[in-house]
């Protein structure tokens, strides 16, 4: 889902950086000093989890974990995603510094939207309905992220629209996979540590 350097136009880079600055300051304003430490460590856990190669049938994939991040970090997700992507760019060369704004905006915004739409429903539900809501949250986060990425590409150059359609199609199975992982994680947290979902 990372947009690499050299693709987006200058105006898109400027707009996405402005959106990211606004999102990060919103996140920091809603994160108390006590909570910033918990956010940092949860962010580290997600960073490590996203590097794990999960074998699915004959192939393997890295999970984005956008929905679990949104559900657990809540409004603090923007600064957490910003730092995680900065580290990914520095340590592994994924994405880049110039497109850090665009990548943060697409991923953090989809996590934040997932939090606003699904967190309350998941908190109040139990059993099968919790599984369904978490699955939908996982799938929604990935598809929203892909849609936002596609929108940025489409606004840069209309000729990218063919590639955007392909991008969205590829993300459909991935969104199902993320939905399953989110369901398992939510069920586990509801049993063992429900306070994680009370953000």
């Amino acid at each position: 889902m990372h947009i690499s350097e050299g693709i987006l136009s200058g105006s898109m880079l400027a707009v996405t950086w402005a959106g990211t600055v606004a999102g990060v300051s919103y996140g920091l304003r809603h994160t108390s000093s006590e909570r910033i430490i918990k956010t940092a460590l949860a962010s580290s856990a997600f960073f490590l989890a996203s590097l794990v190669n999960v074998r699915i049938g004959p192939s393997s994939t890295h999970l984005t974990l956008l929905a679990p991040m949104g559900l657990i970090l809540g409004r603090s997700v923007f600064p957490a995603v910003f730092v995680a992507l900065l580290l990914q760019a520095v340590l592994f060369g994924f994405g880049g510094l110039l497109v850090l704004g665009a990548n943060t905006l697409t991923m953090a915004l989809s996590s934040l939207l997932t939090y606003f739409i699904f967190a309350g429903m998941i908190r109040k539900s139990s059993g099968k309905s919790a599984v369904i809501f978490s699955f939908l949250a996982g799938a929604f986060a990935v598809m929203t992220g892909a849609l936002l990425t596609g929108t940025l590409l489409g606004l840069t150059d209309r000729n990218f629209l063919g590639a955007v359609k392909l991008l969205l199609m590829i993300h459909v199975p991935l969104s199902c996979l993320e939905g399953v992982v989110t369901s398992f994680l939510v069920l586990w947290l509801k049993r063992v540590a429900p306070e994680f979902l009370d953000v």
Partner: peptide, 16 residues
């Protein structure tokens, strides 16, 4: 807060 978040995330990655 952002600098602390950066430092502690790096530290958290090492620990976890």
């Amino acid at each position: 807060k952002l600098c602390v978040l950066f430092v502690l995330t790096v530290r958290g990655i090492e620990i976890l």
